[in-house]
Every structure is written in structure tokens, then in C-alpha cells.
Design a protein around this nucleic acid. Structure first.
Lengths: 300, 300
DNA sequence: TATCTGCTATTCATTCTTGAATGACCGGCG
DNA sequence: CGCCGGTCATTCAAGAATGAATAGCAGATA
């Protein structure tokens, strides 16, 4: 009978829940299948509410009780990962892992340069990037620092408003040569528009300034970086952040001034991390670098 | 060398941090002191950043790195406790532990009656009460349900606005007989006022309606229930929530209408718990009972 | 100064957990 | 139909973590 160490049992319970089988959880945790099985039994015994999983030959299906525990166990896992990052580097030295979440565009186009210079200044820094357009839960510590498009509501977070970045429609000059450029918003209907498959901050912002029908787009992507690549490749016309477009002289602005939407930029960090030197350094570096980046859009 | 189960090591690390010694942590966890010592060593080895504690003959002092990990480990602990509560009762049955946080006054004067009727309806319910005036962190799952005086800002929480409760000054009739009652706000200076030692929601609210000097009070308490008891015992004049005063005919209102401040009532629960039946039942029960309670103040 | 209490570090026998191997079961596929 | 890949359950030997006991140290107390 496995003893009273509930935290271990929670960890394997969560692994079984996410993997769906004892064997899978074992592979994930580096344990054997019998061990995982015993620990699940032990967890069930500890809680005393009967089975947490319904066993089948094709895996384990969670019971209602287990599902009720799930969010808490996920919180534990996030906190454990955060603790590992916090402990991986001394808080004195400027070394260790920093996990950053940002949108795909920012992570692919803006951050690499910034992080490179941060790392050249502080060799011990190691970065993890989590790129997605949904805003991850900073309070659950899925990331240490976030670059956001919306102001954070929670007050356990320290945040810095960087500024606004304008989005304009751009096309590659090769496209412009071949097809010409629209002269009015109505002209857009005859062109190859590149848009987004599902709701994104871009689309939300765009919908305010312009009545954009999803069916208008000749290419719909759920990947912002690929969409940007499509614009650069001359496929068609799509929205690009002005500072990013400014770096590529082959990109020409389409209908300048006719469509204008803006994105806010925020850098967000959990209050607890303020005193950890490397977190602070990265935070400050991001604030400075993004401020510079946003500024480049002004004259672009 | 203790193996790779980090979660266990985190748990004992946190215990050592809070207890300040290996022996103390051992007592807390039900482990022996050598075991705790070995696990701390193992944790230090895993993180690879040198010692997490500076050993001394009088205990272990956390190092900066350990302090950086602390908030994450506490989050883990809170989540573990929440998971235990979630798993302690099936989510189907109306049984299991529900942890509620509220102010001292609400917990001492209002909740007992409400919880009693809830429990008579559902025998399997077990309640934990955490009474304090600081608002605990619901996002860290220190409690399942909170009765609050302020609107929650986080959107991961479901909340229900109950209404306002008026605070008035009251005195026991025995006090009134002996000393008489003030006829004006200026008269208050000559009376025995019961107030609060440190800033509380009451004092904050009071400070807005009336210029109250802390030095005016003849009895300062950091315990709201004791303050209420002092009013009931005839020590002097103090603020009492109207619905609570209404239940005791021996309490007489002082300077009716002259001083009037109000408290908001909110019931708050984490989004994740919405579908757990017993949480939902307690939440609904609290909403209903508190609404009734607040209503009693209206005609009081 | 001597004593007492609390702490950490170390040792060693014990206990407990673990993993490899095996058997059994189910579903998909040739 | 029979085989294969996947799963869980069970057994048993090996290994690892554990606890009791001991020694040593520092500070408080008389």
C-alpha cells in the first residue's frame, strides 16, 4: 500500500488523466505501468470515494470525481513547472529559464531579435517560448512573462503598457506588379485577400474598422506566421503590423489610410517574480525592446 | 539518492521552508528528520543550483533561490488542498468538504444559521470556515466559496451581488440607561466608542461617511466578533450591521440616520467549481440565505 | 560552570516501493 | 481466420527510501 504522499499520487493521477492509460502515463513519468497502476489504486484508496477511473482494456476513463479534481491538478502542475523555473537559476545570478508567451507574430517576428540581444548580454539566460493567440493564464503560471494585446485585469500582475501598433494592408511588390493594387475599399473584392481562419485579435480589431466578411478571403489560415509568409510570397493582400512591414522594403502599403486598426501592446509579469533578477531583466528588456519596436512603426 | 519524484521533494521543501527546520518539517509531514534531510539534499541536487537552505544548528534558513520558489510552492499546496476537497466527495453526490471564507462577523453571526439549514438538507456536507478580514486569494483556491465585501475583479470567478447592508451605531440598552445616548455627532466624543485596531472594511467605509479619528475610540480591537460582543455587553457604542442588530431587541440605534455607511455583499466561487453539485448547492444556498439576511436589514 | 533542550549529521537494519516478466484480453487488419 | 499491437493485472526479486538510534553541536537556564 503506497503511503501518504499525496502529491506524488496527484501527479500520476493527472498523468493518467491526460494520457488516458496507465502505460502512457508510465512513459510520460518514467515509471512502469504496474507502478502507475498501484499509485492510482492508492489515490483511490486515499480519497475513499471509490474508483477514479473506469478500467477498460483500451485505457482508463476518468470518472466524474476525477474530472472535478482536474483543474486543481493542472494548477498544481503549472505551479510545479513555475517552481522549477524559479529554482533552476539562482535568483541572484542572471541565469536560468524564462518562459514567455506571446502571439505567433510577435514570437516569430519580434521576439527573436530582442531575445538574442538579451542573451548576448546575459549568457546564462535560457528562453522558452509558448506562442499562441489565446491568452494563457498568467495566474496559473503557465508562463513567466507575457506579451499581450489586451490589458490584464488581475491585480496580482504587474504590467506595462507599451503602446499601439498600427495594422495596415500590405502586398508584396511582385503581387502589385502582376495584379495592380486596389484604389478603393470596394476594389478589394477583386483581389486575393489573406485572412484568418478563426477569430484572432487581428480579426476582432479588423471587424471594428471595416466590415470584413470571412468569405471574402482567398486564403484563410489559422497560422499568423504562415499568413505573413503568404503576403511576403506575393500571394495576395493581408494585414501586417506596420513595424514589421517597415523592415521589408518590398512590401507596399495598400490603400494607405483607408483601413486602420491598431493593436495595444502590454508586457505582463506575475507580481511574485518582480524580485527575481533574471525575470526582472527580461521584463525590462522586453519593455525596452518592444517600445523601440513600436516606435519604428510611427515613422514607417 | 532519492529519485526523480519532484513533487514530493517540493512538498517537503515547502514544509522545511515554513517550519524552519528538518525536524519540524518531519513532524508536519509525518516523516523522520533524516528522511526530510535527504529529500532536501535530493531537491538541491535536482535543481543543480547549490544549496537551497543554509544549515545551522538552530534550523535551516532559506536561500534566495528557495525564496523565489516559495510562491509557486504555496500555489501548489493550495491546489493540492483544493484537489483533495474536490476528490473527497463524488461530484454527483451532495457530500464532501466545502471550504468557505468570509469576514469574522459574517462567519460568526450569519453563516452558522445558514450552514445549519444547508446541512440539515444535505447530511453529507462538511464545512470548513476560514474567517479573516483580508480577502483570501480565490484564484489560488485557498477556499471554494467566498463571501466578500468587494466585487471580485478576476473573470475566472463567478460572483453574485447580494445587496447592501447598512451599518449603524448601536449600544446596548444597559449602556443607554447608565450613560444616556448622544444626541449629536459631536456628543460622540464623550462616549465610549468601540472601534477597530487596524484598517478593516468597516473602518474604510466609516472613514468615508464620517471623520473618525482612531484615537477617539475607548476600545480598539482587532477582532470584529469581540467588538460586537463588547457592544452587546454594554461597554459602549459601536457599528453593527443592521440585520444583526435587528435580531437583538436590547440593542438600540444611536444617532439614527446621522451616520450611514453600507457594505456590499458578494458571493464568489471559482468557475471550475460550477459543475460540482455540492459546490453549486452551497453557493446557491448562500446566495439565497444571504439575500434573505440582507433583506431583514431593510425593515430593521 | 554544568545541565538541558533543541537542532543537524551519520549509520545500519528494515520495510516498502519499484520494475521486469508473464498472462490475459480486446480490436484492427491482412 | 489468425496475427499483431495495444492495453491492464499479477507475480517476485532487487533495489531504494525509510526510521530508530546515536553522536555532536549551539544556545538558554540555573
Amino acid at each position: 500500500m503506497t503511503g501518504g504522499d499525496l502529491w506524488t499520487l496527484y501527479r500520476t493521477g493527472l498523468a493518467v488523466l491526460t494520457e488516458g492509460s496507465l502505460s502512457g502515463a508510465g512513459r510520460l513519468l518514467g515509471l512502469s505501468q504496474p507502478t502507475v497502476g498501484r499509485q492510482v489504486e492508492a489515490l483511490e484508496a486515499q480519497l475513499g470515494r471509490g474508483r477514479l477511473f473506469t478500467r477498460s482494456q483500451r485505457g482508463l476513463l476518468p470518472t466524474e470525481t476525477m474530472l472535478a479534481m482536474r483543474p486543481h491538478l493542472e494548477t498544481m502542475a503549472s505551479a510545479a513547472a513555475a517552481a522549477a523555473r524559479a529554482g533552476s537559476g539562482g535568483s541572484e545570478e542572471l541565469a536560468g529559464v524564462v518562459r514567455i508567451t506571446a502571439s505567433e507574430i510577435v514570437g516569430g517576428e519580434v521576439l527573436p531579435g530582442l531575445l538574442a540581444s538579451l542573451r548576448s548580454a546575459h549568457r546564462g539566460l535560457v528562453f522558452e517560448l509558448s506562442l499562441s493567440n489565446r491568452t494563457e493564464d498568467m495566474l496559473r503560471r503557465d508562463a513567466d512573462i507575457a506579451v499581450r494585446m489586451v490589458q490584464p485585469a488581475q491585480k496580482a500582475l504587474v504590467s506595462r503598457h507599451i503602446g499601439k501598433v498600427a495594422l495596415d494592408l500590405y502586398a508584396h511588390e511582385s503581387y502589385a506588379r502582376q495584379y495592380g493594387l486596389p484604389q478603393s475599399v470596394a476594389d478589394l473584392a477583386g483581389h486575393a485577400l489573406i485572412g484568418f481562419d478563426r477569430a484572432t485579435p487581428f480579426l476582432n480589431a479588423a471587424a471594428q474598422g471595416l466590415a470584413l466578411d470571412r468569405n471574402l478571403f482567398a486564403l484563410r489560415l489559422d497560422n499568423d506566421l504562415a499568413a505573413l509568409a503568404a503576403v511576403r510570397a506575393g500571394f495576395g493582400i493581408g494585414p501586417v503590423q506596420r513595424p514589421i512591414a517597415a523592415r521589408d522594403p518590398a512590401l507596399v502599403k495598400v490603400l494607405p489610410g483607408a483601413v486602420a486598426f491598431e493593436l495595444e501592446f502590454w508586457v505582463v509579469m506575475h507580481e511574485d517574480l518582480k524580485r527575481t533578477r533574471r525575470m526582472r531583466a527580461v521584463y525590462d528588456g522586453l519593455v525596452e525592446g518592444l517600445t523601440r519596436h513600436v516606435g519604428q512603426g510611427k515613422r514607417g
